[in-house]
């Protein structure tokens, strides 16, 4: 298995996908930090735009911007798996490792690690930019405990989310279909479902991710109910395992022609 993990690591480090997605994570996190520090306080119509910054929960939210770029981690997993079919590298992969479930395990394992690292990068981006942009402003102190919770949430959440991406990619082998499908689900369908069927939201993948990331959004999800961190993690892992098992039983058994 170590050999397979090393091969998977080399696959992802010898193309540009990872580089650009990490760049996107950093850029998107930075954008959110800037919005929260500069734009939101004035948009809230606070006479003294610094007043919001005196709220320690709000300061927590600024660092919690680290969790905002989760979608890129999902895409990383999807592209990593579907790329094998798109470029037909699945053939040489399976020639060395004919047992297909092992490929899924190795890729899933590596992407969990990648997701965790990207989570740490996102946290570092948010934390450093928060320090930089808040410097010279009047603001509530950064709560070390909250920061640590945010760090843990982002690392754990991104790790599992990358794994979900790999499993989705295994299930939907067409790269474009898988990426577009995932975007539509995350950005449109899940939000709609949550609005119309109240109780279902927290059990959906996005809701479960929010539960894991909940420390990143200290003020909550506007009243929407979410699970505890660990229950959320369990539900999210459940989705990854479910998709992976479905893929193993269906698409991954297909002939490679």
């Amino acid at each position: 298995m170590m050999h397979l993990l090393r091969a998977e690591l080399r696959k992802v480090t010898t193309t540009k996908v990872l580089f650009f997605l990490v760049l996107a994570v950093i850029a998107f996190t930075a954008l959110n930090v800037f919005l929260l520090v500069y734009l939101t306080p004035s948009a809230m119509g606070q006479v003294d735009s610094g007043q919001l910054l005196m709220n320690s929960e709000y300061i927590g939210n600024i660092i919690g911007a680290a969790g905002s770029s989760s979608i890129f981690v999902l895409i990383l997993g999807i592209v990593g798996m579907t790329g094998e079919y798109r470029h037909m590298t699945i053939t040489s992969t399976l020639l060395v490792t004919p047992r297909r479930s092992r490929i899924l395990l190795a890729k899933g394992g590596l992407y969990i690690a990648l997701g965790a690292v990207i989570g740490a990068i996102a946290f570092a981006t948010a934390y450093v930019l928060a320090l930089a942009t808040l410097a010279g402003k009047q603001h509530a102190p950064i709560d070390g405990t909250i920061a640590a919770q945010i760090f843990g949430g982002v690392v754990l959440g991104f790790a599992i989310y990358a794994f979900v991406g790999v499993a989705v990619g295994a299930l939907i082998r067409n790269q474009v279909a898988a990426v577009v499908g995932a975007l539509i689900w995350v950005l449109v369908l899940e939000a709609l479902l949550t609005v119309f069927v109240d109780w279902i939201g927290k059990w959906l993948p996005g809701g479960a991710l929010d539960a894991v990331l909940q420390a990143t959004n200290v003020s909550g999800r506007g009243g929407t109910e979410i699970l505890s961190v660990w229950a959320g993690a369990a539900v999210l892992i459940g989705y990854a395992v479910l998709f992976g098992a479905l893929a193993s039983a269906t698409t991954m058994r297909r002939d490679i022609t």
């Binding site: 050999h3 080399r10 696959k11 010898t14 193309t15 470029h87 040489s92 992969t93 060395v96």
Partner: peptide, 25 residues
């Protein structure tokens, strides 16, 4: 086995393609 001439990631170098296989082996 060499099955078709198209099983390469277009953005990966020849050497890296082989190193991936070598790692797995």
């Amino acid at each position: 086995a060499a099955l078709e001439a198209s099983g390469f990631h277009p953005g990966r170098t020849a050497r890296n393609h082989l190193l991936v296989i070598g790692d797995a082996l």
